[in-house]
Simulated assay, not measured.
Amino acid sequence: MHEKRVARAYFVELMTALLVYIVLLFAAIRYGRPMPEGWLRTLVLATPMIGFGLMIRTFVRHLARIDEYQRIRLLENIAVATAITLAVTFTYGFMETAGFEKLSMFSVWMMMGASMAAVSLYRKWADR
């Protein structure tokens, strides 16, 4: 019962933070991009980070709610996914010096998400 309540609280908080992020992202793109360069434009374009900060807060709260076993598993998955992401992005840095196209920093976030999904799925499969 406790695990379901914790999972539901995490889901509701995360979806709320994601909604805030999406609304601020669309507003920043719509209103920030056409603004003249300067500190105000920079501030407007960075406002989606408020939603991102809420997502970090949600994750930290989730870590505090889950039991020790789940916490260790989650943090191990994050550590391995981070190592994979570091290896791939570091390698690609060398490829850029060899003439490969420069990638946006957003690609690192996508790589981290893909690594986290792969590690989580692999560990779930390996534990069977």
Score class of each variant (00 low, 15 high):
Gly38Met: 02
Arg73Asp: 09
Ile78Ala: 15
Tyr31His: 12
Glu76Val: 06
Ala118Ile: 12
Pro36Lys: 12
Lys102Cys: 00
Gln70Cys: 00
Trp125Asn: 07
Arg73Phe: 04
Ala9Glu: 08
Arg8Phe: 03
Asn77Met: 04
His2Gly: 00
Val12Ser: 01
Leu103Asp: 06
Ala87Asp: 06
Glu76Ser: 11
Ala98Glu: 08
Ile22Gln: 06
Trp39Ile: 11
Ala79Leu: 15
Val60Tyr: 08
Trp109Thr: 05
Ala79His: 12
Ala64Ile: 09
Val60Pro: 03
His62Trp: 15
Arg128His: 09
Glu101Met: 13
Pro36Val: 10
Glu13Arg: 14
Arg57Tyr: 15
Thr85Arg: 10
Gly32Thr: 05
Leu43Lys: 09
Gly93Ser: 10
Pro36Gln: 14
Ile22Pro: 03
Ala27Phe: 11
Arg71Asn: 10
Val108Arg: 10
Lys4Ser: 00
Phe52Trp: 14
Met1Glu: 06
Phe100Cys: 07
Asn77Gln: 10
Ser107Leu: 07
Ile22Trp: 08
Ile84Phe: 14
Gly51Arg: 04
Leu121Thr: 07
Tyr92Gly: 04
Met111Trp: 07
His62Val: 02
Val12Thr: 04
Leu86Arg: 04
Val119Glu: 14
Val12Pro: 00
Ala9Ile: 02
Val23Trp: 01
Asn77Ser: 10
Arg5Val: 08
Phe100Asn: 07
Leu45Lys: 01
Ala81Ile: 09
Phe26Lys: 04
His2Lys: 10
Leu74Glu: 11
Val119Cys: 13
Phe106Tyr: 13
Gly93Pro: 07
Thr89Gln: 08
Ala79Cys: 12
Ala118Gly: 14
Lys4Arg: 01
Arg41Asp: 03
Met49Ile: 08
Ile56Asp: 11
Leu86Met: 15
Phe90Gln: 10
Ala27Lys: 03
Val6His: 02
Arg128Trp: 03
Thr47Ile: 05
Met110Ser: 11
Arg61His: 07
Met55Gln: 15
Ala98Pro: 02
Phe100Gly: 01
Ala87Ser: 13
Glu3Phe: 00
Ala9Arg: 11
Ala98Leu: 12
Ile56Val: 15
Ile29Pro: 01
Phe11Tyr: 02
Val80Thr: 13
Phe11Ala: 09
Gln70Met: 03
Met95Lys: 06
Ala114Glu: 04
Ile78Trp: 10
Pro36Trp: 05
Phe106Ile: 13
Met1Ser: 08
Asn77Ile: 02
Leu75Ser: 07
Leu74Val: 06
Ala46Glu: 09
Tyr31Ala: 11
Tyr10Gly: 01
Ala17Val: 05
Val44Gly: 00
Val6Cys: 00
Ile29Asn: 10
Ile66Arg: 08
Gly93Gln: 07
Leu86Cys: 14
Met116Ser: 14
Glu3Cys: 00
Glu37Ala: 14
Ala114Asn: 04
Tyr69Met: 05
Glu68Ser: 05
Met105Cys: 01
Ala83Glu: 10
Phe59Asn: 14
Ala79Tyr: 13
Pro36Phe: 08
Ala114Asp: 05
Thr91Asn: 09
Leu24Lys: 06
Val44Phe: 00
Lys102Asn: 02
Asn77Asp: 12
Glu68Asn: 03
Pro34His: 08
Tyr122Val: 05
Leu103Ser: 07
Ala83Thr: 10
Leu14Cys: 00
Met49Gln: 06
Val88His: 02
Phe26Met: 09
Ala46Lys: 10
Ala118Thr: 12
Ala64Trp: 07
